[in-house]
Design a protein around this nucleic acid. Structure first.
Lengths: 345, 345
DNA sequence: CCCTAGAGCTAAATCGGATTAGCTAGCGAG
DNA sequence: CTCGCTAGCTAATCCGATTTAGCTCTAGGG
């Protein structure tokens, strides 16, 4: 039951603990351990089922091969689990494990958890947000390596950040519409078109809208209007779309700021007897699973959760020296073109 | 930059390291440390911003206040993140953190990860599955505390398991239909009605069906038929439902084995010009977010992810002595009654 | 025959706390 | 005056690795 220790292995192999340590650390060559002794040690270790006690190694080396992953809520966003997944994969490739915790948005708890992780000598900390947003960097963070994931520091600070390239995503949404021939009756659902008409804290909303406007105006097209929503749930999207469908110019395309809003938009269009993709095109963001369940299937700009998670770990663990600290890494948002965008009637 | 150690605190307080240790461990009273000395130590610790090095404590005490959470895939099931959430909450209440890893269904990787966690001296391991299923218990597990989460051991073994009470969920689904007055034309979508017509590995399918049959036959009602599906995605549900809608007796109620299948069923019903809740009732399982996005909103038996996660940690950390090992804990599946069940026409 | 150099190992220190086994001073009893 | 006891604290060991600083022995050069 009690684990075999290195000392035990050394005794069985008839060598000193030092020698055993060198051999098992792969430093046998370097330390000029003879092939015979090396073999004896390896055999003893193997036969006894020796597994090093990582904790003691940690104590000596000061490195735990562990990364702290602190998120606000893993729970509420489905598929945000992909964030963790990507991080997990990248961490495992580097022989690290993830120590995770959740703050539920409580700054005190966040601080406490970060300290708790530092106490455990983690090699770095990822502060993840499930929605892209601005965040105040807890100062405890600065005392070691860290990265913001899906969040941007609200004031300049030396911590790197990894976020989706929302602006480019917005541009892609607009391009898709232009390519299909849309030039008017384009509305956004989720934000207003005037500055400041944006849900608070939402990086995504601001940047997506900026990208959309940029490409449209580059083509001499402007948004016909928009609807600021407090929440981005199907019900909100439904009500807003219904209102928008009464407006002039007649809506020919809706850019929904997320897929849930799109679900509502589909329902509003159905109620009005309008056919998605024929009468009115819809482009969306996030690419939740529901996007491909809708009929017609929804064209959506995906949040690259997996890649975001990976990137955060890469930034934390690989180099991280060369790029100036405070760098913002933007991960491309792939567009999933499906059936909801068509040529305007 | 270098952390303050206990020795440093002791020096500042002018006492021995032993004394400082006793005071900060809250054993001052017990060890008859005078109030003055105690105060001096506390002050020194506070002023220097002392934080104990958890790793070294771990080494001595052999306990890391960490639980290993190994899952097959956190990623693919949305809201399975709630599993982690519940576990995280319960762990934090007990001053533990979670070390997580993912096996992606690879048994070798699973074994390796479990060992890796044991090497880190975790206090216990949760083996989580994202879908309720039977699983072979990796024998490495038995060498320490562990719990299966959302999974059952395929052969008897001393490891406890925490799973949703699928059978009772099935009973609830049937009861809901009976209560609304359904007595015939009840079909299941996802499994066949004959023994063995069940997707492989699926505990959920088997137990839900058993519960459904039990209650129905108790009321002298029998299932009119079913459709075995390999996968439980909307497309599968759509096709199966379409086929079922041509069968006799005429379908009056569909019990869909999950919400995705229900999405497909809704679409099939719509294509046939049938109205959910009026012409055909639908009961579902899982209660994914989409259940409340559908029109009419879908009645669904929820998977209690959060509670499952909590329970697993509780079983692992609290006592765990008294109940016979190998116990299966069943967590109730709450039914979310919405609008998709109506009186048969 | 002595000295040096390297090959091949090992003793001992170290990481930072937790814990065990004392040690000392002071007081009261005998 | 001595012994015993206790309050109040400390020295030393331990946890299980890693790592530094040697130590020993043999072979070769002078």
């Amino acid at each position: 039951m009690t684990r075999v220790t290195l000392a035990e292995v050394a005794r069985q192999a008839g060598v000193s603990q030092t020698t055993a340590s060198f051999v098992l650390a792969g430093r046998g060559e370097e330390m000029r351990i003879s092939a015979q002794v090396e073999a004896r040690v390896r055999q003893a270790a193997h036969e006894s089922g020796y597994r090093p006690n990582v904790v003691s190694r940690n104590l000596r080396t000061g490195t735990t091969h562990t990364i702290g992953f602190v998120s606000d809520t893993v729970a509420t966003t489905p598929f945000a689990g992909h964030l963790i997944w990507g991080a997990l994969d990248a961490a495992r490739e580097r022989e690290h494990l993830l120590l995770i915790a959740e703050t539920e948005g409580d700054p005190d708890l966040e601080k406490e958890l970060i300290e708790s992780m530092r106490d455990r000598q983690v090699g770095g900390i990822v502060i993840a947000s499930m929605y892209t947003r601005w965040t105040t960097v807890p100062k405890g963070l600065l005392e070691g390596k860290s990265v913001l994931l899906n969040a941007l520091p609200s004031k300049p600070c030396p911590v790197a950040a990894v976020v989706p390239d929302e602006a480019e995503g917005g541009r892609d949404a607009a391009r898709t519409l232009l390519r299909a021939g849309h030039t008017d009756g384009i509305y956004v659902v989720g934000v207003g078109t005037k500055p400041g008409q944006v849900p608070k804290g939402g990086v995504a909303a601001v940047e997506r809208l900026a990208g959309i406007k940029e490409v449209l105006s580059g083509a001499g097209v402007s948004l016909a209007g928009g609807a600021l929503l407090k929440d981005w749930q199907p019900r909100d999207g439904y009500e807003a779309s219904l209102r928008l469908l009464g407006r002039k110019p007649e809506p020919k395309a809706l850019i929904c700021l997320n897929d849930r809003v799109s679900v509502g938009a589909y329902q509003a269009l159905e109620d009005k007897g309008l056919k998605v993709g024929r009468d009115v095109s819809v482009v969306s963001f996030d690419d939740e699973p529901v996007a491909s369940w809708l009929r017609p299937q929804l064209t959506s700009i995906a949040i690259p959760h997996y890649e975001l998670g990976r990137k955060a770990i890469e930034v934390l663990l690989d180099g991280g020296h060369s790029p100036p600290e405070g760098t913002v890494y933007r991960v491309p948002m792939p567009i999933r073109e499906r059936e909801s965008v068509g040529t305007p009637p």
